[in-house]
Each structure stands twice: as C-alpha cells, then as structure tokens.
Write a protein that binds this DNA or RNA. Structure first.
Lengths: 344, 344
DNA sequence: AAAAATGGTTTAATCGTTTAAACAAATCCA
DNA sequence: TGGATTTGTTTAAACGATTAAACCATTTTT
C-alpha cells in the first residue's frame, strides 16, 4: 500500500543520510563504510523491499538499462524469433527491451528510432529496411550505440551481425546442382537491400562456377508489398514456360511459403517435377508433403551475438564489430532425386 | 552534437524562466500566457529540436507512458500477433511497449511482472500462465492497472479480454456433427487454465446436446512441455484404436501443427479418413494438402480492446472490464464430407 | 481613490537518485 | 605532542522536468 519506499525512508529509519544508504546499496566506497551500519542498512532495505526508482536513477546516470529493438514486423516468425533471443540475452544482463516494427518502411523506422531514443534507450538493435543509410550515419555521428541485425549496408562502417548470405545461397545452389539439377530458378525480393543482393549473387556465382546457364527469366524478383500474388505468378512462369526449371530456391520464408502454396495449387509435384530449397525454418514446412530442404539461419546465435556486441558498445560506442554467421543447409525430401515420400 | 537541449536552454536563449517554457510547451494556463512570447518559445523549441527528457518527466509525474506486455512466448506466432497489435494500438496513443515471455512459468511470470513494474510501466497486459492467482490478486491490491489477455481466471474479478472459448469449440464440434461426423476426438492441453477448460466444456456439451457418445479415450489432454511427442501418440491412439474417431478437433495452433504432421506420417487421409478442425490461424495451414478448417481468433481485435481498456484503467484502476470475443469458424477442405482436393 | 480582479511571468520546491567534496573523529607517525 | 592520515559519515549540488504559489503590473470594479 502507500508509497514505495525510497532511499530517504531507509535513511530516516536509521537516522543516517541518504548518501550513506546509496553508497551501501551500490557497494561503492566499500572499504570506507562501517560494517555494522552497512548490514543494518541492507537489512532495512530488504525489510521494506526497497526497489530503486529507475527514473530517478536514469535521470542522474543517463543510463536506462533498456535496449530498443526494431524489426520488420514482430508478427513475422523470423522477427519474433530474433526478438525472443534478444529478450533472453538482454534479460541475463539486467536489460529490458522495447520493440517496434518498421514494416520495411524507412520513414516509420526513423520515426521509431527517434521514439526509442526519446525513451532514452541505451542502445539499439536494428534490422533496417532499405533506405536507412542517412539516418544510421546520423546516429553514428551522435555516437548512439547500435548494432544492425540480419541486414546491413556494405557502404556503412557500422557494427552488424548477419548471415553470410552469399555463402548460404551458394551452398544451396551447389547442393541442387550436385543432386542433378541444371535449370535452377530463384525467387527473391525486388529490393536494394544488401542481404538480398548477396543471396542473388550467391545464386548466380554458383551457377557460373559450374558452367550452368543463368537465364534472366529464371531469376524472379517480386515486389515485397505484393509478395503472395507475385510469387504465385513467378512460380507459374518458372514451371510452365518454354524452358521450365527443374529446381527453385526461395530467398525468404515468406517467399517459400507462398511458392509452395502455388506449387500445390498447380499440382506440380515436389521433388519429382521440381526440387525446392526454402529459406529459414518454420513450423509450416512440416505440413508440406515433401518436407523442404532449407537454409537454416542460426537466429538465436545471431541475436545473442548482436545483443552482446551492443552491450559492449554501450561503454565504447566506437568499437565497431562486424560478424557474418554461416548458414546451415538442412537437406530434406524436397530436393532429393527420388522422393522418400511418394504418397500420403 | 553536444548535449540534448533542455527546457533551460530554451529559457536562457529567450531570457525567460523554465517554468514559462514548460507551461507553453504543455499548453497549460493557456489563457494567461502572452501570445507573442508563446510563439517565440515554440519557435526556439523546434529550432533546437527540443525533446523533453522522459526520465525527468516520469520522475515528476509518475507516468512513463510505457506498457508492459507478458505473453507465453514471443516466438510463438499467436503471441507475436498479439504483440504486434498491442504495439500498434499503444503507439497510436503515444505509448511504447516493453515485453517479456513467461514460458508458461508462473515464477518467471511473477518475476517479469516485478521487473516491468520496477521499470515503472504504467500498466500491464498479461497472458498469464497457470497459477498466477495470488500474484494477480496482490497486483490488484496495490492498485496496479492490468488487463488479462487471451486467458483469465473466473475466480478473479479482473479486467480481461478473451475469446469465448466455450462457444468457439461448441460451434466447431457442431459443424463436424452437421457434416456427418459422430465419433469426434479432441486434443487439448493438460492444464488447469480456464480458457482450455472452456474449450473442453464446449466440446463435451456439443456432443451431449446432440446425443453423441463422449468417450474418455477420445479426449486427449497432452502435457504442454512435451506437446509434439504426446500429440503424436494421441493421434495414433485416436486413429488406430478399436473405436477410431472420424474427426478430431485441436485446441491450439501448436497442437494442430503437431497433429497434422502425425496424420501425414501415419498416412491417414484428411478429410476422407478423418476430418480435422484446427485452432488459430497460421500460414502453415496452407501447406497442408487439405487446407484445414479452423477456429479463427480475432487476435488484433483482442489486443486492441485490451490495450484500450488498459489505457482507460490508468486513470481509473477500479473500472473492471470483461470482454468475451466470439470466434469465427473458417470452413475449408479438411472437414468437408467430400474432399475438393484429392491428389496434388 | 481604494480595493479587487486580471494578466503575465518568476520563484522555488519537488520527484528519488548519485557523487564530489567537506567534515569530524580517530589513528598514525615522528 | 601535534600535524598528517585514515576512517566513517554528511552536505549539497546536480539530473530535467512540473506546478503551486508568489509577485508585480495593469485594468476593472465599487
């Protein structure tokens, strides 16, 4: 009931100054404080269940022990998984997390950054949409600690933790080639974001390195705003054209989902008619009759590392750290020459 | 760059007191302030891009304009969808959201509540795990505004927004009956949580109301900690026993996913061998060869209402509001007599 | 013309901490 | 014995806002 106890309450109860109480409770000046009074202070503090007022603390110290997290959309399983791992790691270090969704919109993202900074977060974890270079540069100039997560800009010298997208895609395509596929399509997003470009580069390089043809019509870049419809169209074109592909790789989980749905609709059999490699892990994959081979991102590890780097940067905002994490290719029925699962 | 501008900076630049600046910027004492000086203050404020220091404001006003959100697991699509809708609604009212995952663990949830309160959140949105009655009662006694979301305790007089789980399940079962099924199984969680109990009650009542038998062996309550394995076992028993069921309803999205996977593994055809009704919407459903009929929760609406109620309660913590929201049954191939989709 | 109301602004206390600096008393050292 | 140290504690000034109350001019009322 009543008010929450403050330093003052403890001090009054013992007839000492609030300063002393503060020193004791923060273990400062340890060597100079009387042992007896220290234990009495600690005792009263726990009796009253004293909890320091964070606002007052933050006002004084300019530290909130709060991190801001900006993802594309917290409702997307990938973002949610990132968020969860960030939450856990932050919690372990006594930090809490405020989050926001940018909806891939740079204006909204900038706005969100400002809101979070205005809330005095100590640092930011950002999975930035396209077109955030200027804002991020500005952040850096005002020495706000931040770490980019999942995506980054090669032109910017910032901390980041991201998948090695080039290598991930290269391996995936190589796997398709080595399992006998020669006409390989890619469905990716039409975006300038570097991580997507890297996936495209991995795809093209792998094909070239194996002397396979790389037709423009096999590389489908769909509009992120209309992904479901455009992916469906892309798949129709890839499978029914003059030169239909015998394999397709998807560059994101949403694309994979939309693509598989369309394959079902078109009665194109996986892997007999077409081999498939998806991106990211989702529960959904297991409901597909031929469990898809997919590129697995170590989401937890990425979030964890990014969070740790950010926490380090709080004390040294200029210590830039850049981490590329390798992906793992989980091979399942959807890309294997003869299907293990024929009929249900 | 230097320091962020404060009220004092504005005041000094104009040779007035900080009080006046504060009054102007907060539109207080409107009628008494000189028009000219007011506009000049506003102008300087925007020139300096003045942003009030939230910590100082909060310290003084005891309001942080921050809400706490506790879900079972932010990585679960259902929780994530809740979170997203809360975020949007809160944002519209100038509030930000701190979140945490309880992992269905009451101790962790209590701890989380304390952390969030310690962060001075103005109020809490909680999807509580089992066994939180005492903590919630305590919260109520200290007049902390909170709204339960998705789940609630009938024994507690608290605000909540939840699905009408009884009715949702009743309708689902009735639909199965009317489409010709008589031996209907349920896979639910083994928990005392009221919302789950209600789903069970809806199932049983619907069967009884239609004079159908209700065998104990048809009601499978699986351990939430081992859901995948136990659901698989439950499905095996339901489909291969002496009295196999001709339809099964699942009481959550995770159960639905696990159940459908097992049906695939066992080569039990949906809907020919067994009809299926799932709970919740997920992208995953669309990868199943027979798109499942499911009980659709209006997630956004729930979050939105809960958030609004909480915001109301900030000014009147005793205004208890209880809302039950009806579910919608989305009928698809998995529960219809003859399958539209026969083979891919 | 004195009293009252009004208008425009400032003073100063306060929220709950942190922390450098000051202080007093005990202890040391030569 | 007395100056320098050490030890234990307090004083007081921040941090950046809010807001009741005080203040001083005008203007209005009686």
């Amino acid at each position: 009931m009543s008010k929450k106890p403050s330093l003052k309450d403890i001090a009054q109860r013992l007839g000492v100054s609030t300063a002393l109480v503060s020193y004791v409770l923060n273990n400062k000046k340890e060597n100079r404080i009387g042992k007896e009074i220290a234990t009495r202070i600690r005792q009263v503090a726990s009796e009253l269940n004293y909890q320091p007022n964070r606002m007052a603390q933050s006002l004084k110290t300019n530290r909130t022990r709060t991190l801001g997290l900006i993802v594309a959309d917290i409702a997307n399983p990938f973002s949610a998984a990132l968020a969860r791992a960030v939450e856990d790691e932050a919690d372990q270090h006594g930090y809490t997390v405020i989050f926001g969704s940018s909806d891939e919109n740079p204006a909204k993202c900038s706005q969100l950054i400002d809101t979070l900074l205005n809330r005095q977060v100590d640092g930011l974890l950002i999975a930035p949409p396209a077109g955030m270079e200027a804002k991020l540069t500005a952040l850096q100039q005002q020495r706000t600690p931040f770490v980019l997560l999942d995506r980054y800009y090669p032109s910017l010298h910032t901390s980041y933790v991201a998948l090695n997208n080039y290598q991930a895609m290269y391996h995936a395509v190589e796997h398709l080639i080595s399992s006998g596929h020669h006409r390989i399509g890619l469905v990716t997003f039409d975006t300038v974001l570097f991580h997507m470009a890297e996936r495209g580069r991995g795809y093209l390089t792998a094909l070239r390195d194996h002397d396979l043809s790389t037709r423009k019509s096999w590389l489908k870049a769909v509009d992120p705003c209309n992904a479901a419809v455009e992916t469906a169209k892309a798949i129709r074109e890839l499978t029914t054209g003059v030169q239909p592909v015998d394999a397709v790789v998807f560059a994101s989980n949403m694309l994979t989902l939309a693509g598989l749905q369309q394959l079902i609709r078109l009665h194109v059999r996986v892997p007999d008619d077409i081999a498939v490699v998806g991106f990211d892990e989702t529960d959904a994959y297991n409901l597909f009759y031929a469990p898809p081979t997919f590129i697995q991102q170590p989401v937890s590890e990425m979030s964890q590392q990014a969070t740790r780097i950010l926490l380090d940067m709080l004390d040294a905002p200029d210590r830039i750290m850049q981490v590329n994490i390798p992906a793992k290719l989980i091979v399942q029925a959807s890309s294997l020459p003869q299907s293990v699962v024929h009929e249900q």
